[in-house]
Simulated assay, not measured.
Amino acid sequence: MFRIIIENYLKLFFILTPFFILSTFLSLTSKWTKHDRKALAVKVTIAITITTVILLIAGNAIFKLFGITVDSFRVGAGILLLLSSINLVKGNIETPNTETEDIAVVPLAIPVAVGPATVGTLLVMGAEITKYSEKILLFISLILSIVSLGILLYISNIIEKLLKQKGLNILIKLTGLILSAMSAQMILVGVANFLK
């Protein structure tokens, strides 16, 4: 049970692209006070939690509504995840520009943390699991990953001093490499199941 939680936790943590959202968070709040950054970190964490929980719950209903199989969606989500990972590795990511004061939901929660690739992956993960006990374990993993991300944002001032931008860029590229492996696995499983 503990192993399943850890495995899902690691997958979900990297799917949320924590170091990219941290880098974006720091750049968008460069002139903010420590107190304001911490308050924003809490709001972003809540927004991500609500969004991702809805996606996990709605997975099966969405597939039934549109008549899409889990495997076809798995391949599609895998391709989106692969494209996102390539952008992370190459550094071809645009930091969203916003003139609004409330940036917790848009752009930080959506689409920086919960972009198209994350949406697809969460829908697949939610639809794959049918047992109630396994769903509970998945939700525990999701909450743990979001809390970890929230802590990163909450202590962003400390991380910024320790890593600087160069350190964050290295972590972003490592995240991209991990996501590329996960996307390849998703695509291969979807194709293999389709061929059966």
Rank of each mutant, 00 (worst) to 15 (best):
M1W: 05
L10W: 04
I15C: 10
L16W: 01
L16E: 03
L16T: 05
F19M: 06
F20C: 01
F20L: 15
I21R: 05
L22A: 07
F25K: 13
T29D: 03
T29M: 04
W32I: 06
K34A: 13
K34I: 14
H35C: 06
L40D: 13
A41Y: 13
A47F: 05
I48W: 04
I50R: 03
I54V: 12
I57Q: 04
N60Q: 15
K64N: 15
L65C: 06
I68Q: 05
F73C: 05
V75P: 02
G76R: 06
I79K: 08
S84H: 13
L88Y: 01
V89N: 01
P96R: 10
T98K: 08
E99I: 11
T100A: 08
P107R: 02
L108T: 10
A109I: 04
P116D: 01
G120P: 03
V124G: 00
E128V: 07
S133I: 06
K135A: 05
I136P: 01
I140Q: 04
S145W: 12
I146D: 03
L149T: 08
L152S: 15
Y154S: 12
E160R: 14
Q165L: 13
I172P: 00
L174Q: 07
L174I: 14
T175M: 02
T175V: 03
I178P: 04
S180V: 09
S180R: 09
A181H: 02
A181K: 03
S183P: 09
M186Y: 03
V191L: 12
V191H: 00
A192M: 11
A192T: 12
N193A: 15
F194H: 13
L195A: 10
K196L: 13
